[in-house]
Computed example of a mutant assay.
Amino acid sequence: MPRLTASLRTQLVVGLAVGSLVWTAGTAYADKPVGGEAKPPPQGGSDGKGGLSASVSNIQVTYPSGGGGGDDKGGNLGTVDPDWKPPACWYEPAFTPEQLKKFVDTDSGGDVGIHESWWGKGLWTDHYRDGKPAENFDLQAARNSSAEGYKDYNLGKDGYFWRGVAPDPNASDSWDCGRIMFWVDAGQIPDDPNAPTPKTLAEYAYDKVKVPDTKVELKPEAKSTVNLPTWVWLDKGTFKDVKVRAELPNTGLWAETTAKPVALHLEPGTEDAEVFPASGDCEINDDGSIGTPYTKGSADKTPPCGIRYLRATDGTPYQLSASVTWQVSWEGSDGSGGDLPDGTFETTQDMNVQEIQSINR
């Protein structure tokens, strides 16, 4: 059975600095192309092509409120904290003993760890059926520990074989989850720093939050006038809390991540403009609305949320940018919870501005 030698491990560690590597000794591979997001399979993290993929998670995502992401007039949040990242890797259940035996007997092609793949019997039968030890593949932490083998896939035992998952296997932190697939008794969570927690699921769900488009109401609607204010507002109910629930099957772990709209920020698209308030931040009112709708006779008044353009457009409209800040919090299955970094979502819309020499009222 082809395995990694110490010298080859050293070469791979050096190679990490220059990109993704593929080891093709026999039928074992030390890395693979990055896989994309996919719908969770019923078992085993299948890539949909008959293989076991470490870039596909079994985490199940639902949307208790705020929509399920099917509306194309919106998008995912961008975090305001440039240093925040969702989890790079974690471990999760992949197979029962019966499922693993069936997989090896009928397929046995795929990832036994995030950075170790095996096609053919080899490792699957030697380690998981015949009890032979195997090396873990943890170059980042340099543990290079040995994993004890299993007899006949642990048939008759109650539990799951767990395996590392990384949405981006090329991320440097994904090497922290370097153990090859290992056994955990039913109802247990592995004693490992990269075992999943409710917070792991909450951070995973953060990337799944989809918020609505932020096209704002304007008055005047079609064309603004130089030196006269343009009122900006959003009616109550336009923006509601978005809640995303992430559950990891066969663990009892879940978390709900909630995004709550808290402010609208305006950028007029030109330096020849004034915004109201001066910060450009229009807070959300108690009833969920933003700003105040324009009423007849308010043309000369200063809006609580709006823009005054000082120069007309010259055939090319200004790009008015409206971004909503969303406050993000979470709660988990063990009673834990807290805050995650605020998120933003921005859209732009055309603003044509005319110049009128005299206005009669």
Rank of each mutant, 00 (worst) to 15 (best):
T214A: 08
P304W: 09
K157T: 01
L320K: 02
A6P: 14
L77Q: 11
K243E: 11
S7C: 03
R3Q: 14
G120S: 00
A205P: 07
R3E: 15
N136E: 02
A38D: 05
L218T: 13
A88C: 03
N194I: 04
T79W: 09
G187P: 06
E346K: 15
A6V: 12
G178L: 02
L201I: 13
V328Y: 01
S336Q: 04
I359Q: 14
L253Q: 09
V184K: 02
P277A: 05
Y294H: 12
R179W: 10
G15M: 02
I359L: 15
E135Y: 12
L155R: 07
E37Q: 13
W23R: 08
D173Y: 00
G149E: 00
G78H: 13
W90G: 00
F276S: 11
Q60K: 12
T316P: 06
G122D: 14
W162L: 09
S53G: 13
K32T: 15
T316L: 02
S224Y: 13
S358I: 14
R311N: 10
H115S: 00
P2I: 13
A222F: 15
G26D: 09
L253E: 04
H115Y: 00
T62S: 15
V184E: 02
P220H: 03
G67P: 07
K260R: 11
T347L: 07
S55G: 11
D138M: 08
W254K: 03
E256A: 10
L266Q: 05
K121W: 09
N250H: 14
Y128V: 00
G343D: 10
G122S: 10
D31F: 08
S7K: 15
L139P: 00
N170S: 11
E221W: 14
S7V: 11
V216K: 03
P196V: 08
L340E: 02
V244D: 05
S146N: 12
T5S: 15
V18F: 08
F103Q: 05
Q354M: 12
P317N: 12
L77G: 00
T257P: 02
I290D: 08
P277F: 07
T62D: 13
A54I: 00
P2G: 03
S289Q: 06
Y160T: 07
R3C: 08
N194S: 13
E37V: 13
D350S: 14
A134N: 01
S298D: 15
V275Y: 11
G297C: 07
G122Y: 08
H127W: 03
R3N: 13
E256L: 00
A246F: 04
A166H: 03
R308E: 12
D314H: 13
P93M: 04
Y150M: 06
A94D: 03
N250P: 03
I180K: 03
W330M: 07
G26I: 06
A263P: 08
C282T: 11
G120M: 01
G68H: 05
T344C: 05
S336N: 06
P64W: 07
S20L: 03
N170A: 14
D72I: 09
T257F: 06
F345Y: 15
G252C: 13
